[in-house]
Simulated scan of single mutants.
Amino acid sequence: MNVIEAAGITKIYGSKTVVDNVDLKVKKGEIYGFLGRNGAGKSTFINIITGIIKPTSGSFKLLDEPNLKKVKHRIGVLPDYSTFYDSLTAIDHLKYYAKISGYKVSTEHCEYILKRVGLLEHAHKKAGKFSFGMKKKLGIAQAIIHNPDLIFLDEPTSGIDAESGLNIQKLIVNLQKEGKTIFMTSHNRYRQEFCVM
């Protein structure tokens, strides 16, 4: 089964073509790497197929459904730049994002997810005090808090230290083993072998 099917996805702003006629299919349980330099349109493509912006032309289906509203609760997204509320703790954020997706989660479940991304010791710290790398981990946590079937991770290891990057890669592989499908972007060629698993 294909969980992502895109046909002719194009996005044009004025005279600039940002995404040019992209066709792709991603099978259930894959880790699909979308590689390209900065500014190549990777984030724009993700924004299109997750419903944030509309394509100029083309069509897509997620989880075999052309109506995104019907499957949005089964999708998790780490955008390229996550925005958090400075006054909320990590746990507060996860409960908030889960609620948006239609789920009520316990503090214990939030702590479990924070442990998976390496943030458990900062569970009750306000996001305003988080470093860039900590915010990246919190972004991944909010993408998976509601146990989605399809996960979009936009540059999940950019701007973080090597050890954290390796831990995130292990987490992605473990999510795949749990039956999740992961669509991730990267501008780093050295991650190519990992991305196309």
Rank of each mutant, 00 (worst) to 15 (best):
M1P: 03
M1R: 02
M1N: 08
N2D: 08
N2A: 14
E5K: 01
A6L: 10
A7C: 15
I9Q: 03
I9H: 00
T10L: 05
Y13F: 14
Y13Q: 08
V19E: 00
V19S: 00
D20M: 12
D23F: 00
D23C: 10
L24D: 09
L24G: 12
V26S: 04
K27S: 12
G29A: 06
G29R: 01
Y32K: 09
Y32P: 03
N38G: 13
G39L: 07
A40T: 07
A40L: 11
G41V: 07
G41P: 08
K42D: 06
F45V: 11
F45D: 04
I46W: 00
I49E: 02
I49C: 03
T50M: 02
I53R: 01
P55R: 11
S57G: 03
S57M: 06
G58A: 06
F60T: 11
K61D: 13
D64E: 15
E65A: 04
P66S: 01
N67W: 00
R74D: 11
G76S: 02
V77T: 11
V77G: 04
L78C: 13
P79M: 00
P79E: 12
Y81F: 14
Y81K: 14
T83I: 10
F84E: 04
Y85T: 00
D86Q: 09
L88W: 14
L88A: 05
L88G: 05
T89W: 04
T89D: 14
I91H: 10
D92R: 12
L94V: 13
K95I: 13
K99W: 06
K99V: 02
I100R: 04
S101M: 14
S101L: 14
G102T: 06
T107C: 01
I113T: 13
I113Q: 05
L114F: 03
L114V: 09
G118T: 06
A123S: 04
K125H: 13
K125E: 08
K125R: 12
K125T: 12
G128P: 03
G128K: 07
K129F: 15
K129Q: 01
S131H: 12
F132L: 13
M134S: 00
M134T: 05
K137W: 14
G139L: 15
A143V: 07
H146Y: 10
N147S: 14
D149Y: 11
D149T: 05
F152H: 04
F152P: 03
L153I: 09
L153M: 10
E155S: 11
S158D: 04
S158I: 07
G159C: 08
I160S: 08
I160V: 07
E163M: 14
E163Y: 06
S164A: 15
S164V: 06
G165D: 09
G165H: 07
N167Y: 15
I168D: 12
Q169G: 02
Q169W: 03
Q169C: 13
Q169V: 09
K170M: 10
I172M: 09
N174D: 15
N174V: 08
L175D: 05
L175T: 06
Q176S: 13
Q176Y: 08
K180F: 10
K180T: 05
T181R: 07
I182A: 00
I182E: 00
M184P: 11
M184C: 01
H187S: 01
H187T: 01
R191I: 01
R191P: 13
Q192T: 15
Q192K: 10
E193D: 04
F194Y: 02
C195P: 08
V196H: 10
